[in-house]
């Protein structure tokens, strides 16, 4: 009984003012590193990847870990964003900013339309349906002349931004994503989302507008995933159906969230850092990368189901970026 009491009286790290200051200081320090260009190009490249994966993984986590809508089709928005940027910059010679805006706009639009269709399904059906939709889009783009069919499109941004400005943009997307998820979960909406994850029927019975909540989450997730993906693909310089709409994106996101800790805000951050460095190591073993990621994911689910951050929080009784709106009162 004693231990249980301790568990419920979690120390909430971000709720204390000093920790908030530390967080802001870390973010400012990262910005400073980007602006002053003290980091090497190589280091910046890693940072960009980490920032972008954090943003995308936070969104997948928002869907799966916090709302219970396990999507296997977030690559849809990654592909759409990539093609939007390609069309905007390479064909219409617009700026990168406008290209990104277009990608985000298209993604929001598509997610709104899809939501009307997909929200009738629950659980596994929803997961499969999101995957099917992404596959349909891949086939569509494979046969669409305007976007270059199977060979895809090159993305040429003129003038090409310097690496440190890409780094700054990525960091901004990442910070915004975390702040949005944090604020979302700390408001009444977050309470509703958690209720929905645990029991949709009960949630709607107590007055949670399930449809509106799901819509909000999906649109936010689509927008941020698109934003992060457009930078990612600009860096790659090319987008084609098998890369943009590849299921590998979802494999990566699942790895990051599961290993880091599903249902925690800190999880995707830790997971992304691990993922980016692991990928570097795995690049030496071509072909094995997804296999090893899959094995690690399965082992984590079996033996560390709460992920690294979730397990640490439970063991050490703290809660970084607590997503809970109300703190547990101590039992008498």
């Amino acid at each position: 009984m004693e231990k249980r009491r301790l568990n419920n009286g979690k120390i909430k790290v971000l709720d204390s003012l000093p920790m908030l200051i530390v967080c802001i200081a870390v973010i400012l320090a990262l910005y400073l590193v980007c602006f002053t260009q003290i980091a090497s190009t190589n280091a910046m490249r890693y940072m960009i990847q980490i920032f972008l994966y954090i943003a995308m993984a936070e969104m997948w986590n928002l869907l799966s870990g916090f709302t219970g809508m396990t999507s296997l089709g977030q690559q849809l928005y990654i592909g759409l964003a990539g093609y939007s940027v390609a069309v905007a910059t390479t064909m219409l010679h617009l700026s990168l900013g406008l290209g990104m805006a277009m990608g985000i706009g298209v993604s929001i639009l598509v997610s709104l339309v899809l939501s009307l269709l997909l929200f009738r399904m629950e659980g596994m059906y929803y997961s499969i349906a999101t995957w099917v939709v992404a596959e349909i889009f891949e086939k569509l783009f494979l046969n669409w002349k305007f976007v270059g069919q199977g060979s895809g499109m090159t993305i040429r941004v003129e003038p090409y931004p310097r690496i440190h400005s890409i780094c700054i943009i990525s960091l901004t997307i990442c910070v915004c994503a975390i702040v949005v998820v944090y604020l979302l979960l700390r408001t009444k909406v977050g309470l509703g989302l958690n209720a929905m994850r645990d029991d949709v029927g009960a949630a709607s019975a107590v007055g949670v507008n399930v449809f509106r909540h799901k819509l909000l989450v999906c649109v936010i997730a689509a927008a941020f995933t698109a934003a992060a993906a457009s930078i990612f693909l600009v860096n790659k310089g090319i987008v084609y159906p098998e890369s943009g709409f590849s299921i590998s994106w979802t494999v990566s996101l699942i790895f990051i969230v599961v290993v880091g800790g599903s249902g925690t805000i800190g999880g995707p951050i830790v997971g992304s850092v691990i993922y980016v460095f692991l990928q570097e190591i795995l690049a030496r073993f071509p072909g094995w990368s997804n296999i090893i990621l899959g094995v690690i994911t399965i082992l984590t689910i079996l033996f560390l189901p709460k992920g690294i951050v979730g397990t640490l929080q439970q063991k050490l009784h703290f809660d970084i970026f607590s997503a809970k709106r109300f703190s547990y009162s101590k039992r008498k």
Binding site: S64, G68, T70, L72, G123, M124, S127, I247, V251, I254, V258, G287, W288, S289, N290, I291, L293, G294, V295, T297, I298, I301, L302, P305
Partner: peptide, 27 residues
């Protein structure tokens, strides 16, 4: 074992298996 932890973990385990099998056969 994964099913004991819930529906979602079990679903993700089969997803992991699919990825492993696919890339394994590819190699």
């Amino acid at each position: 074992r994964a099913m004991k932890k819930g529906n979602e973990p079990a679903l993700l385990v089969t997803f992991g298996l699919s990825v492993i099998l696919q890339d394994g056969m590819l190699m």
